[in-house]
Design a protein around this nucleic acid. Sequence first.
DNA 1: TCGAACCCTCACATCGATGTGAAGGTCCAG
DNA 2: CTGGACCTTCACATCGATGTGAGGGTTCGA
Lengths: 128, 128
Amino acid sequence: MRIGELAERTGTSRRLLRYYEEQGLIVAGRGPNGYRDYDEATVDRVIQVRGLLDAGLPTRIIKQILPCLDKPRAIYFPDATPEMIATLEEERDRMTRRADCLLRNRDAIAEYLDAVRAYDPAGSGGAG
Amino acid sequence: MRIGELAERTGTSRRLLRYYEEQGLIVAGRGPNGYRDYDEATVDRVIQVRGLLDAGLPTRIIKQILPCLDKPRAIYFPDATPEMIATLEEERDRMTRRADCLLRNRDAIAEYLDAVRAYDPAGSGGAG
DNA sequence: TCGAACCCTCACATCGATGTGAAGGTCCAG
DNA sequence: CTGGACCTTCACATCGATGTGAGGGTTCGA
């Protein structure tokens, strides 16, 4: 598919798709006219990238961890350098902390919302 | 305490502490000489702000949700406007999705790391 | 009194993720 | 052949979080 369709199907601007490619997060073939040509799997890939980006990871890190994620692995072990392993471990821990913080605060928000509802079931609000 | 000590104790630059104040995330008293004066609780506050920031929330949102989080609530219900409630619900759900994505990918990384270790317990790596 | 180590404000710089638009090529339909 | 809807690259703009530094005040100790 071409960039327009991919943009449509992933809810991502063309600009960003080109940017992700530039950052090595997705790959695109080229038609004889120079147009980018994406295969079906790129849709999921882009969605995953968006998720990781939204979760706070920078493209530099996403690029590193992506190869370990989507595919049936086994072929990728030889690629794993010690630095790569270290980066992954570090990032795994960082993601754990991030998620903890997120969930802790989310729970506090949920608790607050519950309390508000219990206090004012009608939901009037702004009762200055 | 003054800004230097707060910076030291929270691992945050003075610049950022002033920025957080400008964004309404923390408050500071002022000494007669114009120096900022923080109370003890600000240390935890700053740490929490950093956590939320690192978890991907923008200061604008953090400012909205902070009042619901740290304190023993009950006084804050009258402040809760319907828009505020809506924002909180939205953000709670967004945080859930974010955390899910984070944990899913973290698990994938962890799984990959386990597989690598099982494959190469010695951890040689880079076996081009 | 001097200097060091604080503090202040203000403003410009940077970096990553993104938007926007210019200048131009390609393809298809009329 | 023309017009529109695609696509290309390039480059500048924006926005939030952050760094850096200039220009200047305060406090403290030698």
